[in-house]
Design a protein around this nucleic acid. Structure first.
Length: 336
DNA sequence: GTTCCACTGGAAGACTAGGTTT
DNA sequence: AAACCTAGTCTTCCAGTGGAAC
């Protein structure tokens, strides 16, 4: 059933991209000066999740590396490395310049100085989920360094600029925008067909089933591929020689649950307690939530910290917060 | 319409963990 | 061993907001 699992993996970057030619051309154009040894404008890739922003950024920078030997490219996920320090550390690590940096006791400014003094090959930095980065000041610094060109990826421009000071905002306003819209049905089907073609044995899935999946995924390729993967895995496990529509129907909630489970695993025990309280209550008002939390755990954190936890869980799409003031109500996030 | 006040979330500083230097 | 770093977490304080009560 599964002939080459690589093509079904999350994060796989195909050799040919489907349905994103204009975006690839646009980004290639922005990065073109790099091939002449000049710094490029900062590119800003925006759009909802699962529309191929990361994939296109990787694809385009990979092609750049194929073209030229003297270009370095580096990918850093700012969600996983959300502090300025960690992001800088990853960049230095990628450039091979962190050999003598001690995990602590080397101040952030020192890391920035290292990058300022970097004299290696021109480097294209891809900073993914950059709206999650605390301390966006480093973008300002990196923007100044002519050895680096930046590709910034964010869900929305507004979220990126929400907590940024005016000076940085005005710099980044001048970036070259590449906006990604949700995939249409045909595009999603084409993307899946490409993976099916290379990853699965012939005739294992009826093409019309791909439309079912695409319909369910509502323009989100990551989610569509996750459904496909889940269905293929189940069929493979059972030794079946085809993916039935029943398997696909089962795979949909499984894929959804997998996303939630992954987010839940990142929570600390205190955060998990808060999540459980909200789950049990259905909907809950802040004072009741704080009280219940204090009852449930030993050495409870302050309300302010609980609010920080809550906004983090909201970002992870685990809970919804409705109302901005006295009408605030917390509840679990509705599915997608 | 006006006032009240519960709630949010920013800012600054204290505290902690974990590392290096002397 | 002690002194000294730093990043990251948490607390304290508080201004702003907007729904609710009057």
């Amino acid at each position: 059933m599964i002939e080459d699992a690589r093509f079904l993996r999350e994060g796989f970057v195909p050799h040919e991209v489907v349905h994103r030619d204009p975006e690839v051309e646009h980004l290639s154009g922005v990065l073109d000066p790099v091939t002449r040894g000049e710094p490029a404008e900062t590119a800003l890739l925006t759009g909802p999740s699962g529309v191929g922003k990361t994939c296109i950024a990787k694809f385009t920078t990979d092609r750049l590396r194929e073209e030229r030997l003297d270009i370095e490219t580096l990918y850093v996920n700012c969600w996983q490395n959300y502090s300025a320090y960690r992001t800088l550390y990853r960049i230095l690590e990628g450039l091979g310049g962190n050999l003598d940096i001690h995990r602590q006791s080397t101040p952030r400014d020192e890391l920035i100085e290292r990058l300022r003094n970097y004299t290696g090959e021109h480097c294209v930095l891809v900073l993914d989920e950059v709206d999650q980065l605390q301390g966006k000041r480093i973008l300002y610094d990196l923007h100044e360094f002519s050895q680096f060109s930046m590709v910034l990826i964010a869900n929305s421009e507004n979220e990126l600029f929400a907590d940024t000071d005016a000076r940085l905002t005005s710099r980044l306003r001048g970036s070259e925008r590449v906006h990604f819209d949700r995939y249409g049905l045909d595009a999603l089907v084409a993307i899946m067909a490409q993976r099916v073609d290379k990853g699965l044995a012939p005739d294992t899935i009826d093409p019309s089933f791909l439309e079912t999946i695409a319909d369910e995924a509502a323009g989100d390729a990551r989610f569509a591929l996750s459904i496909l993967r889940s269905a293929a895995q189940a069929a493979d496990r059972d030794g079946a020689d085809a993916i039935t529509d029943e398997r696909i129907m089962n795979a949909i909630p499984q894929a959804r649950e997998a996303v939630r489970q992954k987010s839940l695993e990142t929570l600390t025990p205190h955060q998990r307690a808060i999540y459980d309280i909200i789950e049990e209550a259905g909907t809950i008002e802040p004072p009741d939530l704080y009280d219940a939390y204090r009852d449930r755990v030993d050495d409870a954190k302050t309300d302010r910290t609980v609010r920080n936890y809550l906004s983090k869980m909201e970002q992870y799409n685990l809970i919804d917060a409705e109302g901005t003031s006295r009408d605030r109500i917390y509840q679990l996030a509705r599915a997608q």
